[in-house]
Design a protein around this nucleic acid. Sequence first.
RNA 1: GGGCGAAUAGCUCAGUUGGGAGAGCGCUUCCCUUACAAGGAAGAUGUCGGGGGUUCGAGCCCCUCUUCGCCCACCA
Length: 886
Amino acid sequence: MSTELEKLPKVYDPFQVEEKWYSFWLEQKYFHAEAELGKPRYCITIPPPNVTGSLHMGHALCYTIHDVLGRWKRMKGFDVLILPGTDHAGIATQNKVEQQIAADGLTRFDLGREKFLEKVWEWKEHYGGTIIRQLKRLGCSFDWERERFTMDAGYADAVVEAFVQMFNKGVIYRGARVVNWCPRCHTGISDLEVEYEEQHSHLWFIKYPLADGSGFVEVATTRPETMLGDTAVAVSPEDQRYMGMVGKDIMLPIMERPIPIVDDAHVDPEFGSGAVKVTPAHDPNDFEIGIRHNLAQIVVIGPDGVMTEEAGKFAGMDRFEARKAVVKELEELGLLVKVDDYTHSVGTCSRCDTTIEPLLSEQWFVKMKELAQPAIDAVKDGRVKFVPDRYSRIYLDWMENIKDWCISRQLWWGHRIPVWKCADCGEFVAAKSAVEACTKCGSKNMEQDPDVLDTWFSSALWPFATLGWPTKTPELEAFYPTNVLITARDIIYLWVARMIFQGLEFMGEVPYPDVYIYATVLNEEGRRMSKSLGTGVDPLDLIERFGSDALRYALIQQAGMGQDMRFSDSRVENTRNFGNKIWNMSRFVMMNLEEGAGGQGLGAGKPELDELKLEDRWILSRLNRVIKTVNDGFGNYDMDDAARSLYEFLWSEFADWYVELAKPRLRDESERATVQWVLWNVLETSMRLLHPIMPFITEEIWQALPHQGESIMVAPFPETDESMISDAAEAEMNSVMEAIRTVRNLRSEVGATPGKKVDAVIVTEMVELFQANAVGLRSLARVENLEVTKENIPDTEKSQYLASHGPGFDVYLPVAGLVDIEKEVARIESELKTIEKDLARCLGKLSNEQFTSKAPAEVIDKERRIAAELEDKKAKLEERKKALSS
RNA sequence: GGGCGAAUAGCUCAGUUGGGAGAGCGCUUCCCUUACAAGGAAGAUGUCGGGGGUUCGAGCCCCUCUUCGCCCACCA
C-alpha cells in the first residue's frame, strides 16, 4: 500500500483542485484550436453575454452545456473551437453609464457624445470582463485567445461591411414610421424590446362636435392627451349610425381645428361608440389609417416625453401631466361624457421599464420579406433543426409574418450607422469610411448619420464575424458553418432568426445545423430567476460552497428537454456528495493498487476473459452499457440521461456492489491482480466518461491513477465494446444481488446488528451459481456459515428458521426459537395478501382469451413466469404459516 | 383571440415502438463494519390532475375539462 495515498483527505476539497487544473490546462493550451487540417472540427461560437452582465444561473447552464459538448468532442479527437466573447449591448450598457454619471447630476447630453463614449469604454474595460472571469471559474474550456467583442476593430469592420452591402443592394431603406419610443432611453426600440404589462387605467369618452354644429360624435380613448394631435375621426364603413357623417368635419376641441370623419375597415363598430379618434403621429394603427386617408401627422409629444409646440398651450408639459390637464379642460368644456375603469396592456421599455410612447420618427429599416424566405426554407427542409423540435414552429410562425426590422437607434453606444447625408441634395451615401463628397452632386457638405445600429444587427453576424469575415481567414474556412447554437428561448426571434438569415445572406450557408434551446432556470418557487425581483441564486455563491463540478453536474442532470427547470441549493449539495463519493471510491481503489500493479503494468495486466468472475463480467457489461448511454446522450442533447446513468452506475453499481465484492477478493492472492485490474479499468474509464460534466475531480483522480497521456482532457473518450455486454452475466448477477438483499432483509428482521454474523441456508436449483459466489455473498450479507443446497428443509424444522423467498431461491436463517411467532405469522399474512392480489391480476390476464390470443408471445410468457413465481411463493408462505402455527 | 408547455411519492423531477410504477431530498429503524456519517443496510409512502374513448392491455395514444406557467397578436 502506498503511504502517500493513505494521506489523501477523507473529504474531497474542490477549491485547490479546481484552480490547479484550470491553470494547468491553460498552460498546456488545450483550449486553443488551430484551423489545422486532418482532424474533424467542432465549433460553437457562444452566445456572447452582455458586458453589463454577471453570471446568473441561466448562463451557468448555457455555458456548462457548451463545455460538456466541447470537452466530449475534444476527447473524441475533434479539433474543438468554442469561441467566447461579449456583446456591447447598446441600450443596456449605455443605461449603466448613464446611471453612473447621474450620481453626479449629469446626463449624456451634458458630457457630449465623445466624452460620454470615453466613459462607456472605461466602464467596459473595468467591468466588462466580469462574466468571462466567472466562466473560467465554471471550468469552461473556451479558446480565450480568440475572445471577441462585438465592437472590437475587426468586428466593427464586419458590421460596416454588412451594412454597406445591404444598403447598396437596396435592402436597407429610410422611412418615417411610428416606432416604439422610450422617452427615458431617448431612442426608438423594436417591437421585440417592448414588454407589455396589464395596467389599471381609464377609458375616457369624449364628445367631438361636428363642425356644422349639427351634433356630436363620441370617441373613447385611453390616452386623452394625444387628442391634441388628432387629424381625423374614423368609423367603420359598415356602421349604419355614421353613414351620413363620413366626409363631414369635426371641430377638434381645445385645438379648434377642423378634422375629417373618414371610414376605415380597421374600426370595430362593436367597440365603444364605434368611432375612433385618429392620431397618426402617435399610434401605429392610426398611422396606417393616416396613410390610407392621406391625413396630416402632427407630433404633439416629443422624444423626451414632453409636449411639443404643436400641443399649443400644453407645450412643455410632461405627457402624463398633460393628460390630466386635457381631461380637466374637456370636463370644463362639458365634452367629457364619462370615465370608465379600464384594464389594458401598456408597452414598457424592456431595458428601463418606462412607458413606451409610440412616436413618428425617421428610422432605417431592413426589408425582411426576401431575407426571410431562405431562412424559412432552411428550417423547413431540415438544414436547421431545432431541439426540441416544437421551437421550429415558433420560429416559422414568426418568420412567416415578419415585419421590416427597424435597425437604427438614437443612442451613442454602438456601431455608428455608416451613412452620410448630403446637406445640399439630400442624397444618402453608405460607405466603410468617411464620405468626403456626395456621389450625386459632388457637394463636400456631408454629415454622418448620428444614430447607431440595433445591437442585434451586429450580433446577427456573430457566427462568421468572429471567425474573421469579411476576410477569408483559415478559421472561417475551417469552422463555418459552426456545429450548434445553444441558447435560451427568449432570443429565438431577436437573435437566432437573424443569425440564420444573415448567415445565408453573407455566407450562403446556414450558421449551424442544430439549435438547442435549453430550459429556463426557475427558482425553487417556480418563479423566474431575476435580479430585480431578488429571486436569483448566484452561481458563484454555489461554486464557493460546493465547487464547480457539483454545480455543473446539478445543472446537467436536470437539463432535460422540458421548458422550465426549477433549481435549488439542495441539488447542488447532493451532487457535492456525489463528488465526495467518487473521491472516496477512488481512494479505495488507489489504496489497493500497489506499485507493481500501477503504471504500464496494469495495461499489460489485462486478465483473460476466463479469469474474470461473474461480478467482473457484470460490472464491465454495465460499464459498456453506460458508455453507450453517455455517448448517445451527449450526441442527442439528452445530457440529463448521460448524467443520471453515470450517477446510477458509479454509486449504485460500482461503489455499492462491485467495490464491496472486491474487498474479500483483494485479500486472496490468486484473485488480487484480476480485481485490481477491473477496479482500475472501471474507475479510469468512468473518469473519462464523466470528465465532460465534472472536469476537475475527474482530472484529479485520473492523474493519480495509472494512466496514459498528460491530461484526461485530451485522453480518448470511451467507446462501447459490444463484446463486453452480457445479458447472461447481468441476469446471474441480479440473482446473486437479490439473494444478498434477501439475507440482509432477514437479518434486519431478526434484529442482527451489522457487526454480527449469521448462518444462512439457500435452497435453490442454481447451486453452482451461489456456490461460485459464496465468498461475496458471505461478505456482503455477513454470513458466517453458508449452506447452498437443492434439498429443501423438512417442514418439521422450518419453525427453527426465518425464511424469505426470491426468484429461484429460498433463504433460511436459523433463529433457534428467537422468532416471535405471532408477529411472523402476521407478516406472512400481509405478504400473502399482496401476493394474492398480484396473482389474481396475473391469472385474470392469462385466463382472458382475448389476451392470450392477441398479446405477443413473449408478453404472455413473461406473464406466465410471473404467475408461476407468485404461485410458488404463495405456496411456500402458506406452508410456512402452517409450520409456524402448528 | 391564437399557440406552446406542465400536472406522477410530502418536495424537486425521471419514466419512447403501450406490457409487473422509479430516483434524489425528506421520513422510520439499525449501524462510526479500515474508501466514504457529505456514509452504509433495511423500510414506509402513489385514485400517474378529472372524465370519456381506442386496445387483450394506457402514466404513455385520441377527445374533453380543470389548474398553473410561457409565447404571439389585438386592445379606441
